[in-house]
């Protein structure tokens, strides 16, 4: 076991990890941040997406020790300081961008990464960017609508490519 330190949602944290400890395990089991979901554990589904130094990564496919010294943001870090929902989270609620909710943390984190890179994406660009996030309810239309709304753009009435 070695000790690893990083900043998670603005707070310095540290913990003992094995070489094989995944960042997702460090966040969920070590820090109790269970908002980061592990869906497939095979790098396919994107439910575990968090930001490491501002970049979206699949936390089930990165070792915790590789995030030493990094700034990590999880879904728990997306709310406003007063605890109210952040813009993207609120848009998911307003546009019913979730059904079972399991993929939602990853969807929100990917959406945040997209909007940081491209503040006014087209609907096609939103769909393309989400190719690494799988919604097993297949509720993609409302997820896309929510992200369009969060970007401050007109929301397509019927989402379709």
């Amino acid at each position: 076991m070695t000790s690893v330190s990083m900043t998670v949602n603005g707070k310095p944290v540290s913990g003992d990890v094995e070489g094989r400890t995944l960042l997702s395990s460090f966040l969920r089991d070590g820090q109790g941040l269970t908002g980061t979901h592990v869906g497939c554990d095979t790098s396919q589904c994107g439910a575990c997406v968090v930001h490491v130094n501002g970049q979206a990564v699949k936390s089930c496919t990165m070792f915790a020790a590789e995030a030493a010294g990094a700034e990590v943001t999880t879904i728990e870090g997306m709310a406003n300081a007063d605890g109210s929902l952040g813009t993207i989270q609120q848009a998911f609620q307003d546009y019913h961008g979730l059904q079972c909710g399991f993929c939602t943390p990853g969807m929100v984190m990917s959406a945040a990464a997209l909007l940081a890179e491209n503040p006014s994406p087209s609907e096609a660009e939103v769909r393309h960017y989400l190719e690494g996030n799988i919604c097993r309810c297949t509720g993609y239309h409302n997820i896309v609508r929510a992200i369009m709304a969060a970007s401050g753009q007109e929301v397509p009435a019927v989402a379709a490519e």
């Binding site: 997406v49 970049q55 990564v57 990917s110 997209l114 996030n133």
Partner: peptide, 9 residues
């Protein structure tokens, strides 16, 4: 290659 999160790693 892959998807955005994969390309970041």
């Amino acid at each position: 290659i892959g998807d955005p999160a994969v390309r970041n790693r």
